[in-house]
Amino acid sequence: MTRIHPTAIVDPAAQLDSSVTVGAYTLIGPNVRIDAGTTIGPHCVFDGHTTIGRDNQFFQFSSIGAVPQDKKYRNEPTQLIIGDRNVIREFATFHVGTAQDDGITRLGDDNWIMSYVHLAHDCKVGNNTIFANNAALAGHVKVGDYVILGGFTTVHQFVQIGAHAMTAMASALLQDLPPYVTVAGNVARPYGINVEGLKRRGFSSEEIAALRAAFKHLYREGHSLADARAAIIERQATQPAAAGVLQTMLDFLDSASRGIVR
């Protein structure tokens, strides 16, 4: 039998694996599906068309799958999809998507989500991220793998954050943040490459040196964005061992829709 506290209210139509644990006074709606090994603390609310993977841990007072804070929402059957092995701490709020996007809010695998974090409608978050307390994403934000958001970071709607990027505490991010770059401030400004994070994840010294040079092309040498991009392409040709990480940077620059942090 599923391990459900007697004070919890689980709709009979909800689909819970037999190994799921549900804490006291938690409410789970009819369109919720939760896979094996997931633990839900007390006083949580799970609603909407919400699908949750394996071995996640939700702490108390989380609100997962509520309708979006969007006046255009008209009760469409949009979704929230959460992957595997995520830790979601107290008072996190995740909303389902909207019909104005693809209708899905998505959190990947192995993410560490601290207290009071907000994922608005249609956000797409990758894997192995860390969101510190009170980090908040507005609607339609895209976050790459291994991103770290400092506490009280706020992200404007439709912003993209590249893989391995990092924000300092209380950063206000209004434009797209390229991969590997660290920012701080309100409004956020670039400060360098996330060197320590890249070292911990096994990036080579040549890759890190090439990214530092790319950062200088973008931010320290007075280039236009087009000229900085051309300089990165030239460097890519002369440093084949770093070609992959530089291509990731170039691909992001090509896809940036709000302009990059500069």
Rank of each mutant, 00 (worst) to 15 (best):
A237Y: 04
S205N: 11
D109S: 09
G185H: 09
T21N: 00
T153V: 09
A66R: 12
T153L: 07
Q175L: 12
R200S: 02
A188S: 15
Y180K: 08
I52L: 02
R262Q: 15
V20E: 01
E90N: 04
I81E: 13
H118C: 06
N86M: 07
G29N: 07
P6H: 13
M114P: 04
R220L: 15
H43E: 10
C44E: 05
D109F: 00
G222C: 09
A209T: 08
K199D: 04
H164M: 12
W112H: 08
V141N: 02
Q69T: 14
I52A: 12
N75L: 09
R220W: 12
H118A: 07
D254V: 07
R189H: 14
A170Y: 00
L177V: 03
V181G: 09
A242H: 11
V187N: 10
S204T: 15
A243W: 04
Q247M: 06
L198E: 01
S255M: 11
D47G: 03
R54H: 12
D17C: 07
L137Y: 10
L80T: 00
E221I: 09
T167F: 11
T50Y: 10
A66G: 14
T78Q: 08
R229M: 14
N75V: 02
A243N: 04
V125C: 01
L137V: 06
L16F: 02
W112S: 03
F158E: 07
A188L: 09
A13D: 14
V181A: 02
A163V: 11
D122G: 06
T182R: 13
V245Y: 08
F252C: 10
K124W: 07
D251A: 14
I148W: 08
N194G: 12
I9K: 13
T78V: 11
L253V: 14
V125P: 00
R33S: 13
L137N: 00
I208K: 05
R258Q: 14
T38R: 00
T248E: 14
S205I: 06
R235V: 02
N186E: 09
G222I: 06
G53D: 10
V187W: 06
A168V: 03
L253T: 12
L225C: 04
R3Q: 13
D35I: 03
A13R: 11
T182L: 06
D102L: 07
T182V: 12
H43C: 13
I34A: 03
R262A: 14
T51R: 04
G144K: 06
P6L: 10
